[in-house]
Design a binder for these strands. Structure first.
Lengths: 193, 193
DNA sequence: ATTTAGGTACACAGACCTGTGTAACAAGGC
DNA sequence: GCCTTGTTACACAGGTCTGTGTACCTAAAT
């Protein structure tokens, strides 16, 4: 009915495939040939949708930049369930660390736009923590939000290397201690054990 | 006097240069040509000392695998000064994250030996924390050591992206809280402020 | 029926990569 | 003098990479 329902399908397919391959194998390790071949299209078609590999990289990272959706759950539960979600993702065998950190590590200071989006992503996550902490009346919400972000990224880095989902649990336990220390009331023993 | 004082100089020069370039620009981003050219030697000479680029990569990571030297300082001070050292390294403009994490991120699951040495490195650091914590009689030295390692790697990842040495201070403050919570006596207010 | 948009096949340029082969050169030990 | 060891210069093989050029095809819109 609408004149363009199936039209953007190709661009999305390219992006989705690039995302998967970039993330799993590394950006430099995946050539545009590989992406096109994986979809079964010609390289020319790919370049008709994205002017360069750099544009594809930017689109890949932009696609990964998703905000956590607002929730009605209690703030403290939102914060702690972050680490449960991490543990679940660590257990999936296609988890390969934070795409933004990996991109910066791989592309170095060379690429300014990559770093820029990575910084924006990390800060947005920190602010998400901070706003919840403010709701909770936590002492030093700014500093504590940073510390929680450290625990998240630390567990991601450790899991990337060790492949051990327990890293998320360790982070959650540390987060619980830090929250309590900041005067936040945290529900019982679900953290221990 | 000794017959081979200047002999291994070349191999060391190659390794040192490879280390610097691999670390700063990424392993895949640096070709053997570039390394040889940087030293001013021929590519042939490089290949006379290392049979392949993979061997050079392994030597690079092995070179980065240094144990913290034993110290007479009090254990708690050793632990906390780790974060001061991190802050100093973050402030240097040639800091580009953890070479082991970066290598795993860049080379992916593809390379088993790289992951192996990265795991060994991370575990050796965790054990270093653990042994000090045992000396201190901390509760749950194993778990706490993991948590401290998370804070280290988290601050490294955050600094890699943001270039903000304050990440090390945030990690130190979190570490202080966790140590106190485990019953470790930590000296005064040098952490706050 | 014709135009137009998007896709295909395929070759190619130009760069860079790892790794090898070869012949010549320099310096110290014997 | 001779021989060994390390280095150099340089070409090259064979592969991969990004990106372009071109001519053809198909299907939908008009």
């Amino acid at each position: 009915m609408a004149p363009l329902p199936a039209k953007p399908a190709m661009k999305d397919r390219i992006l989705e495939t690039a995302d998967r391959l970039f993330y799993l194998q590394g950006i430099r390790a995946v050539g545009v040939d590989t992406i096109a071949a994986e979809i079964g299209i010609s390289k020319r078609t790919l370049y008709n949708h994205f002017p360069s590999k750099d544009a594809l990289i930017s689109a890949y990272l932009a696609r990964r930049f998703v905000q956590p959706r607002p929730s009605d759950k209690p703030a403290v539960e939102q914060i702690l369930s972050t680490f449960d979600a991490l543990e679940r993702r660590f257990a999936a065998k296609d988890f390969r660390g934070c795409p933004f950190v990996n991109a910066v590590a791989e592309l170095g200071g060379e690429d300014k736009s990559v770093r820029k989006i990575a910084i924006a992503f990390k800060e947005s996550r920190r602010l998400w923590f901070r706003d919840l902490l403010i709701q909770l009346g936590a002492a030093d919400a700014e500093g504590l939000a940073t510390q929680l972000a450290l625990l998240v990224d630390g567990s991601i880095a450790q899991d990337l290397v060790r492949n051990d989902p327990a890293m998320a649990r360790a982070a959650k336990e540390a987060a619980t201690v830090l929250l309590r220390h900041a005067g936040v009331k945290v529900g019982g023993g679900e953290t221990a054990q």
